[in-house]
């Protein structure tokens, strides 16, 4: 029982980080209908900038720089590339971001080389004990930051002009622009937010207990794809829940590997995708995704 609780809590905290990255995916998709495969390398860029900068400017400023760099890079992808072919179909746009991802990830991993860059977080390897369960302090912080960001996001989405603009852009772009909403500005804001969320996700994915920033950190964003899909691609709430589910599932399958060994060992990486397929069988648009209703 104790093991289950430990695993479950550990999974939730890991899932909180996935939620942030997944939220970035969904924001971009809602505002511009792009599946952004470059999210992984933007995450790596954010983490890389933090790791390189923290020794000279201090941790807090380094985080600000990393978040800024990721946000700017993300906006540039939209403004320089995506905007030119905004009307292209989903597949084309997705492959375009994939091309960008290959470029950015190749250059960053070349710069990192064999290094394992320390992210320089002041909480280091501290551990927090809550009700007999010991969790890395960085994970607790990640959970807190994620909760605050998600709540802020929700409020902004519901009550600010940006939120209304974005929702109407997602609903029907042409009508929205007729109503005087500047779609390009909405798009840029959404991409900037996604970049910032990726950088923060990257910060926590590379601090303790992870080793640090390596060339392959960008691949971690792949783990959030099942989260986004099973939550529903256009649902921010779904992305958050999806992230938590994926975190818990992957930690639980790893922790109970011995009991699950009849399914083959090393399930931790596959289980999220299997869960995703099962959910899609029952709900083809994910848990909270808008169902396409066809009226004749």
């Amino acid at each position: 029982m104790n093991q289950f609780v430990t695993l479950f809590v550990g999974g939730l905290f890991l899932g909180a980080i996935y939620s942030l990255v997944a939220l970035g995916f969904v924001t971009v998709f809602k505002a511009t209908h792009v599946i952004n495969f470059a999210q992984g390398s933007v995450l790596l860029l954010g983490a890389y900038v933090i790791a390189r900068a923290h020794e000279s400017v201090g941790f807090a400023l380094a985080v600000a720089l990393g978040v800024l760099a990721a946000a700017v890079a993300s906006v540039l992808i939209d403004a320089v590339l995506i905007r030119r072919i905004r009307r292209a179909d989903l597949g084309t746009l997705a492959i375009l971001t994939l091309g960008v991802d290959i470029l950015l990830a190749t250059e960053l991993s070349r710069r990192i080389g064999t290094d394992v860059l320390n992210i320089g977080a002041p909480w280091g390897s501290d551990v927090t004990e809550v009700a007999g369960i010991r969790v890395a302090t960085s994970r607790v912080l990640a959970g807190g930051v994620a909760a605050v960001l998600v709540a802020g996001f929700w409020l902004a989405f519901k009550f600010t002009d940006f939120g209304i603009a974005m929702r109407s852009a997602a609903e029907d772009g042409e009508v929205a622009s007729l109503m005087g909403i500047r779609l390009n500005r909405v798009a840029a804001t959404a991409w900037a937010l996604a970049g910032a969320l990726a950088a923060i996700g990257g910060l926590f994915l590379t601090s303790f207990p992870a080793a640090g920033v390596t060339g392959s950190v960008g691949l971690l964003a792949l783990a959030t794809i099942p989260a986004v899909v099973l939550g529903g691609f256009d649902s921010p709430g779904g992305a958050v829940l999806g992230g938590l589910i994926i975190g818990v599932v992957s930690v639980l399958t790893a922790g109970y590997q011995e009991e699950l060994s009849f399914l083959g060992r090393g399930l931790g990486g596959v289980a999220p995708f299997a869960v995703m397929l099962l959910v899609l069988l029952v709900r083809p648009s994910g848990l909270f995704g808008t169902r396409e209703v066809t009226r004749v």
Binding site: V228, G269, M276
Partner: peptide, 18 residues
């Protein structure tokens, strides 16, 4: 449909590897 299918099919690749 559409994008859900694309990403769901991604699951097959990982299951296949396993």
């Amino acid at each position: 449909r559409g994008i859900y299918l694309g990403l769901a099919s991604l699951g097959l690749v990982f299951l296949g590897q396993h």
